[in-house]
Design a protein around this nucleic acid. Structure first.
Lengths: 346, 346
DNA sequence: CTGAAAGCGCTTACAG
DNA sequence: CTGAAAGCGCTTACAG
């Protein structure tokens, strides 16, 4: 068989003009028929609809956006594409937006101001309806200025510009959740092992830890600051237990990796978790929390819900509704597994 | 000070018409001046450029795209937003595209055919120049049909349609890398502990494992299939070592979590890694590999590079260049840490 | 009830 | 060397 010499024609999408022409009406009428606007006989409208359907007509969004001054598109700026924090946030944002028929441009800006600026300009050129900025920690700014942009901007899990709207986790509340849970379980000597002093949340959570213990009249042990790693968890156990008379019966950890290190180290020195020592982590990083022996109780920052809120708020802003500026702290929740122990009477 | 009663006017972006009018030329001339087209006095061109610059003029991409029939936008379809496999792939894709001034729509389709169809239609309506499909495993299709789309489609780390272009990891080659490395180190009894039979890569890697051992004249132990978890790693160590006379001196694991479980279990029964038993993982999940004691040698699938290739290929397709259909297997690499041991003479 | 006209913001032949 | 015109694909007053 001889192959066709002419190249396959680049199938152009069918236009409203073709629909109108085949239905024997003007493009104006066709447009109105398909959009449910204007008045015409039900019969005409139906005929146009059928024609459009038959041709597989889909309106060109570019043309519509040009006219409507609304692109049903938003930009999502992040410096944490690889990270496990921005992921659930982004996922929540997407969910909220997809339901409204809004598409999202993903822009990974790393920590490069030039790249960030480029992305913002590209998004503006493409007439996004709004921008959401998200990051890997709530005490750092993205490397770009998003103030005075002429389109709405929402910050989610990243440090906002002054006067902007931001959604962040309530770390203080999250820490309270953990420490109060230990108190309820009857633990008396609760230690805190956490990350480096350069993180604002380290201080926020440590303060909440102190506050709860003070309120309950329990001894406050100085929080141990280190890195966010398993290795630091191991090391911290040495500091807490080696040659001490008063040993902790509970450890509240700043993240799940530290908690995992603590639990492994406790097991290696023959201490039972949770019977001898209860452990609670932070982040509820499922794959780690569930692989820990025993499975790890952990504070969950509800990041997907946070992203969802951010998305919905952006949509309402784009829709012209007003919103109070300010930072909104969304509550954490405690996911109880087996590492913290059961109530004394449970 | 009395606040201004009139609301801040929604700052409309400045248009070419305003630039032209201020520069005292027609929009046609202004357009040509800014695009380096047409011929005019250097002076006129410069004056127009300055005016545009001064007003902060940026052309409306929607209008340009409508005319050019090219939106400099592509769609990225994934069913693995949360996952650690598609992340590096997506990151590599983004990098390749951003350099070319192309923006990407992120579409998370989970495993929902309706949602996927919706996303594809939205992308088509928005006139994306092409689509990249990516997933969490290379033996599963996304829940949507991307054949005959009138725009180019590339598959990256997911099962492609027949006749399409796809980039996947060379799992067989990756497994060879690991097993051959053990052989070079003088290991004689190499076991293989991997995931469930429902994954194609499990069989592909197991076959490579058998092939290498057969080539080297070493004993082949039947691969142990289980789940992709640490717990399975623990269990597998029992099966390999409990009451056996001929114990392995090396274990090649199907992923890093299994490897971590294996290493922890070996330590707990007093066996030294790597002196008594060498261990190699798969995936090179950095945060796990580095926290393992000792740090884990692992096969890296080079997913970011894979994504980059996919992005570049899509761009060339969009640019009208031809490309051979087919599945392209990209090589893995072995990242050597401490769990596999040193050469006997090393 | 339906269509011609104007227009969204830009670009590209085509005149002059 | 510069501008008027036509057009990308659509929508929305405005006529008739």
């Amino acid at each position: 068989m001889v192959s066709d010499a002419s190249p396959a024609p680049a199938k152009q999408p069918v236009t409203l003009r073709e629909v109108a022409s085949l239905a024997g009406v003007s493009v104006a009428t066709a447009s109105k028929a398909l959009n449910g606007q204007g008045r015409m006989t039900a019969e005409t409208r139906e005929r146009i609809r059928e024609t459009a359907q038959r041709l597989g007509f889909r309106p060109n969004s570019l043309a519509q956006s040009l006219l409507r001054r609304r692109s049903f598109t938003v930009g999502l700026l992040t410096n944490d594409t690889y990270g496990r924090f921005s992921l659930p946030v982004m996922s929540g944002i997407s969910d909220a937006l997809v339901d409204a028929g809004v598409s999202v441009f993903l822009c990974n800006v790393e920590d490069d101001p030039r790249l960030a600026q480029l992305h913002v300009e590209a998004m503006l050129d493409k007439r996004v309806d709004g921008i959401i900025a998200t990051g890997k920690r709530i005490d750092r700014h993205l490397p770009v200025d998003l103030a005075n942009l002429r389109i709405p901007v929402i910050y989610a899990f990243t440090q906002p510009d002054p006067g902007a709207i931001a959604f962040v986790s309530d770390d203080s509340g999250g820490a309270r959740l953990a420490v109060e849970h230990f108190c309820r379980l009857g633990r008396k000597r609760i230690a805190h092992v956490t990350g480096p002093a350069s993180f604002a949340v380290v201080h926020e959570r440590a303060q909440a830890y102190r506050d709860v213990l003070t309120e309950k009249g329990l001894p406050v042990m100085e929080p141990l600051l280190g890195s966010w790693s398993e290795a630091w968890g191991h090391e911290a156990v040495k500091k807490l237990f080696d040659g001490k008379v008063e040993k902790p019966d509970a450890v509240f950890c700043g993240n799940d990796q530290i908690a995992r290190g603590v639990i492994d180290a406790l097991r290696e020195r023959g201490l039972d978790v949770p019977d001898d020592v209860g452990v609670i982590g932070f982040d509820n990083w499922q794959i780690v929390a569930e692989a820990t022996r025993p499975p790890l109780t952990s504070v969950d920052m509800n990041l997907a819900a946070l992203g969802r809120e951010a998305g919905l708020t952006l949509l309402s802003l784009v829709g012209g509704e007003p919103a109070e500026p300010g930072i909104r702290k969304l509550p954490c929740r405690l996911v109880v597994r087996q590492s913290c122990g059961r109530p004394p009477d449970g």
